[in-house]
Nucleic acid binder design. Structure first.
Lengths: 214, 214
DNA sequence: AATCGAATATATGATCATATTGTTCAATTA
DNA sequence: TAATTGAACAATATGATCATATATTCGATT
């Protein structure tokens, strides 16, 4: 194995350990020693890989967010129909945090990591990519005559904001089953607003996959 | 003038003065003395009307929120067509804070007063009424065959959450013109998702009023 | 290049003195 | 009787000081 690849794995191991400890104790209470213990190493060793505690936190969270994004991207790539892609994207992105409890806990403790306001988004580069994915689907949907011609930029921002809000409602400030109903109704309403007249005549709205039962 | 009516005016004057001072200094830095000075009275006099500083703040904000709600309700009542009512409701509710700078500043300083999460809403009774207004319009739209039959409860919650998000984006954490574009695109998209097929055939989507230029 | 233990710098929390401001109340006014 | 007041009082915020915990550095070692 190449040296650089080996280092990549080391970084992944460090980020995973950090995510686990930060999820359990939060940034403030988690100590470098806790994370070092999780990795069976001396705390000073961590400083070979990261500058300080804050950078370890930031990098670990970025790693976690990229895993999420990649999972959605892969699921979208496995579909061919653009409307199905839209639906899959929405469902995979929405359901992901149910599987990644560490990331969920970290976001719960620290909602500023996934904020509604892009100006205060510490990971705007990552989320820009997500919005680009969304725009690409909208663009291809319009080109194929499946979606009505809409303001792609504005609608993409809007849908992303709506999505962030639902993630917050569901995973970061959960208050019951209402947010899942809102997700369902929201996808329906938005698809209803997006689908072109001509496509509408061909048949019912496309079927949605069953949400994962966990 | 009746004694009770006189007292009502006194309360209004107190709430207005409180809103002004709290808007300028925030809850922490505003003093009871500042508010008393605004009213040309002794600070101890205020304790005849309210229990303590916190109650004064809460009641004053509630008063401000009710003014907002009543303005929307009156505007809706002046329309007859249910689709127009929906549009007017959205625009009046959205534009209001541009006119009420004191309330806007208070919300900016203290976003928890108008939160995205109803479980932590200190004024849930007021906002319940707003959602009821929204549901009433949806219900009548469906009954009249102008809106598609949708899950009224879920959609009303969803639209209200979307609305709160836009208020926050526009007035509480403003970051440029994007939020107004999102409002415009959002109303278009949602109306597109709401309007019934039969209504759609009759003509274009209803025209929207020009947003107030300020 | 990577790891380590020990030394040092920094952050955090507890304690207390002091100042500000919130609240009460008996007396007074309209 | 309802409303207002100034003065007394209590509660709370603020800032200084110090002790402890933990983040970070560094020279030695593998």
């Amino acid at each position: 194995m190449k040296r650089t690849a080996k280092r990549e794995f080391k970084y992944e191991a460090i980020y995973k350990a950090a995510l686990k400890v930060f999820a359990e104790y939060g940034f403030k209470k988690a100590t470098i020693e806790d994370i070092a213990a999780e990795l069976d190493t001396a705390k000073s060793s961590l400083y070979f890989y990261v500058k300080d505690k804050r950078e370890l936190y930031d990098k670990a969270v970025a790693y976690g967010l990229r895993l999420w994004q990649n999972k959605v991207r892969d699921a979208v790539a496995a579909e061919t129909d653009v409307v199905e892609q839209f639906i899959i994207m929405a469902h995979k992105a929405y359901e992901y945090l149910a599987e990644d409890r560490h990331l969920q806990r970290i976001l719960m403790r620290d909602p500023a990591l996934f904020p509604l306001f892009s100006s205060q988004d510490p990971y705007s580069d990552i989320n820009r990519d997500s919005i680009a994915m969304l725009k690409s689907i909208l663009q291809r949907g319009i080109d194929a005559g499946r979606f009505r011609p809409i303001d792609i930029d504005g609608v993409a921002q809007l849908l992303f904001a709506f999505y962030v809000m639902l993630i917050q409602k569901t995973y970061m400030f959960p208050e019951g089953a209402l947010s899942r109903i809102m997700f369902k109704d929201g996808v329906d309403l938005i698809l209803g607003g997006l689908i072109a007249e001509t496509a509408r005549k061909k048949g019912r709205l496309p079927t949605k996959p069953k949400p994962a039962t966990d």
